[in-house]
Simulated scan of single mutants.
Amino acid sequence: MQRIVRLLIGLTLSALALSAAAQQPIIYPAKGQSPERQRTDTAECQAWAQQTTGVNPVALAEHMANSPPPQEQQGRLLRGAGGGALFGTLIGGAAGGHWGEGAGIGALVGAMGSGMRMRREQQQASVQQAGMQQQASGQLSTYNRAVAACITGRGYTVE
């Protein structure tokens, strides 16, 4: 399960990186600007866009890459089963000396409860990760629109 969650997070980050690359404006020097002039204009427009929108694409990408990994899940099923077995043993013993049956039923119920909690936590982590990706994508889109507006004002064609 943990490997699946890590794989999903990796795929989400890859999708974010591809999305950011796909959203970058394509800039054409429509008035014959030199490559050096285009680099200078682009850098100045990127700085202006960052200042205007408050979005730093590098920091945003680093934040997404460094988001905390999901909690370790190893051993939770066993702990749930162990706790359930102990509880079941106590209940089974109190209900007429059925220690073994109580332990077995308790272990099963404890493991099932732990498994359900783990799935719910993983689903919540996936939803949270998707929300972070959507927010980052929106911020990058705003930043790229600002870059495009600035560079268009300097005589370039932007697609």
Rank of each mutant, 00 (worst) to 15 (best):
G92E: 03
T12A: 15
A111I: 07
G97V: 08
A136R: 00
H63M: 07
V55I: 02
H63A: 14
E62H: 08
T53W: 01
G75K: 06
L18V: 02
A15V: 06
A149K: 07
G82E: 06
A30C: 02
A146W: 06
L8D: 15
L60H: 03
V55A: 01
G88S: 13
R6S: 10
L108V: 14
M116Y: 10
S126R: 09
Q23M: 14
H98E: 12
A148E: 02
Q23G: 10
Q74G: 13
Q134E: 12
Y28W: 12
A47M: 12
A47E: 15
A17N: 05
Q139F: 01
G106P: 03
N66E: 06
E62Q: 10
K31L: 14
I91T: 13
L90S: 01
A94I: 12
N144P: 01
P70G: 04
H63R: 08
Q134L: 10
A21V: 04
G104F: 09
L108K: 04
Q46H: 10
A20C: 09
A43E: 13
S137M: 05
T42E: 11
V5R: 09
V147R: 00
G115M: 03
G102K: 11
P35D: 11
G83Y: 10
G100P: 01
A107N: 10
V127R: 12
R154Y: 05
P25A: 02
Q33A: 08
L108Q: 04
G92H: 02
A65T: 02
N56Y: 00
I9P: 07
A17W: 03
S67I: 10
M118T: 05
L16Q: 02
Y28Q: 14
A65H: 07
V109T: 15
M132N: 06
